[in-house]
Nucleic acid binder design. Structure first.
Lengths: 189, 189
DNA sequence: GTCTATAGGCAGATAGAC
DNA sequence: GTCTATCTGCCTATAGAC
């Protein structure tokens, strides 16, 4: 176990630049400066820039796992999906300014480092599986994968539109649309 | 007017690399090699790499304008929206492999060159305005902007999921979902 | 564990012959 | 108009003192 918090500061700085210019587009000098760590010292904690990227993706994945676990502990299935949609809606200004921290990094890494992109992709597939479980618990049976995919697609697409056009309205509108759609859904059983 | 097709070959090569590793991540050497043009000669046709990027965005925008115009000439409003959705569905394998040529470049440029990203953003807002016009023609009145935003969000989100997870099924599923939704829509008048 | 200095490579861009 | 050669600067990564 490290006695300093430098590793954590580096990961946090990598997370910050990934929300701004992007991880791939940022230099280790940028990240080191933001973490207040000399550039060369990064290599004591991470063998390569790629390893720092892995730590960043892992940190984000852990964050979202914790979020879902909290919803699972405190809310019934239907309200869990609502909570997810409401979180996205509440973040609309940040989403417009920086894009979705999940979708953006997946898109960014996909072309540059497929293996790391696959790791980042688990953030999406974890959310898909979790949404599917909620829809199953709500009684939607085999329709659940489609409902989960639609929910996540809409929110990812709205984030992309809001980010690209610098207009939070798309996220707000799509969240409203999705909640109305959810309210009107009839379970099969 | 240039007497050679080198400019066009350079733009085409830029378009190709933008679908692969991304425009920003590709070097002028890559693009020049692909266009079979010596690197230094790029600067006779374009003052900077950025100017080549502008030409690439303009070429794509022109392509999609021509597509919409053809649909406008040959189909009634309802079928135009169908044609758009069907085009996306038909391209699902390419979308999974390369991502959406519109959404990806907007996301890529947003952080790196906001001014150029705004230019790329017109590809999205042009599609939004066009979809809105079709919904208005179908009698949806003031609901039209929301319907247009939902249609484009869903497809962009599905493309993102398919690309990130390397699985065309998300685009296929979302296109089906969207066509069923469209068929069930009741115009206000 | 921490830091400085620097190697080695590649990027975008330019100069100037033809 | 075309092409080669090259400049300058930044990037990742390493060597090695402390």
């Amino acid at each position: 176990m490290p006695r300093t918090d430098k590793r954590a500061r580096l990961v946090a700085a990598a997370d910050t630049v990934a929300r701004g210019p992007g991880f791939t587009h940022s230099s280790l000098a940028d990240i080191a400066a933001r973490a207040d760590v000399p550039v060369g010292n990064i290599y004591y904690w991470f063998k390569t820039k790629r390893e720092l990227g892995e730590a960043l993706v892992e940190a984000r994945a852990t964050h979202y796992r914790a979020l879902r676990r909290q919803w699972d502990r405190t809310l019934p299935p239907r309200r869990r999906v609502d909570a997810f949609i409401e979180m996205v809606a509440a973040n609309r200004d940040t989403l417009a300014a920086e894009g979705c921290p999940i979708g953006s990094i997946c898109t960014e890494l996909r072309r540059h480092d497929p293996a790391l992109a696959a790791q980042a992709g688990t953030m999406l597939s974890d959310f898909l599986r979790w949404l599917e479980a909620q829809f199953r618990a709500m009684g939607h049976g085999r329709a659940s994968p489609g409902l989960a995919s639609h929910t996540l697609s809409s929110l990812q697409g709205a984030s992309l539109l809001s980010h690209a056009l610098d207009d939070p309205a798309h996220v707000a509108r799509e969240a409203r649309h999705l909640k109305r759609w959810l309210a009107g859904l009839r379970p099969v059983n």
